[in-house]
Design a protein around this nucleic acid. Structure first.
Lengths: 194, 194
DNA sequence: CATGGCACTTGATGTAGGTTAAGAAATGAT
DNA sequence: ATCATTTCTTAACCTACATCAAGTGCCATG
């Protein structure tokens, strides 16, 4: 079942009976994204939520100097979208790119709205999802303000142990908020210590 | 009517008939908070959402060096809570303090849950609120990573023009993410320019 | 099997913003 | 009004990180 991972994710927060599950699945559609392919460009209106089942996506912005800033990674079991654009249906600031060949499940904004009407429980589900990412973002703001790059890296390692191995260092550096050069130096410093 | 500002806020997102309005109001209770009084301490479990009708609150954390970091201000018309703690009902990290004598309306977590059952529309209302603050937090992460302190200050001025005047500079400095000393220097630099 | 790009490293130097300290100005309590 | 406390300013010095530049290893595509 290609939807197992997603149904599992949903059932953590709300219980679905068979009919509801069928309705939910009828609104979904699978999608393949090739490595390096952009599935959303900044300036576009985000029309989908993406649930990753295999591979990995990253969401990033590009600042006025052309520097990329990674806002989030989505390994299997995670959702990805430009929340600002998805909510407001205005042109967004996020680029979404596959870091490797990726399999995902799409829930379009339109179908999401339908779902809210057909199975109101999903209001609760997505509220909880949103709450969780709000909390994560808030924690990240605090971390960025009060911790050194080294401490943020160490937190990243603990929080996403699976990601560290198969993610290019420059992507982690960007997420942490430092240049690849400094990140490299930092790591060799840490290695020397231990 | 002391609840006018709040009812106005709600009606931006969902429409309430008279009965629903009555139910809503029955779950609310007014509260006064004196200047410098803490209405939530880190380590406590957050049991309330607070809607400010007069005065101003700030939410902040204290890092391991004892430095405070302001996460948000709540002038009249804004909600305040430790979202992490409110959602998870675990001990939180946020302190909430009144910057001046403040009048507010309390919606307890318990009443909020009741409200979800009695008037399910409120699931939508609070989902939208959460979405909005998620978006704001995300923007703040991007700003912190890609802008200078001066640019962040200029954004703050545009976004919260009413706050600049009657907020102590050190609070703004903390929100921007710089020391009061640097903030002071920055400002006198800006004045000299114009 | 060349080669051209990309990720990573390492070094020298530059800078935004922090720290410490001390005085001035504003604000609040009595 | 006056004293005490907190806030703001200014200055000298310091550090975490950025920038620029050059070099190494690594696959991927012809």
């Amino acid at each position: 079942m290609p939807f197992d991972l997603l149904l599992n994710n949903v059932s953590k927060y709300i219980h679905l009976d068979d009919t509801e599950r069928e309705i939910f699945i009828s609104h979904l559609q699978p999608k393949q994204i090739k490595r390096k392919q952009l599935t959303l460009n900044e300036g576009e209106i985000c029309k989908n939520s993406i649930f990753v089942t295999d591979g990995c996506l990253r969401g990033f912005t590009v600042d006025k100097n052309g520097v990329e800033h990674v806002l989030s990674f989505a390994p299997p079991g995670w959702w990805m979208a430009d929340m600002y654009s998805l909510i407001s249906q205005k042109p967004g600031i996020l680029n979404i790119e596959a870091l490797e060949d990726t399999e995902a499940i799409i829930l379009s904004k339109i179908n999401q709205e339908k779902l809210y009407h057909e199975v109101p429980k999903f209001e609760r589900f997505f509220r909880i999802l949103t709450e969780n990412s709000l909390v994560a973002n808030q924690q990240r703001i605090v971390d960025n303000m009060s911790l050194t790059a080294e401490e943020r890296y160490s937190i990243f390692c603990k929080r996403y142990p699976t990601l560290i191995d198969h993610l290019p260092q420059k992507q982690i550096a960007s997420y942490i908020g430092v240049t690849p050069e400094f990140f490299s130096r930092m790591r060799s410093g840490l290695l020397r210590k231990s």
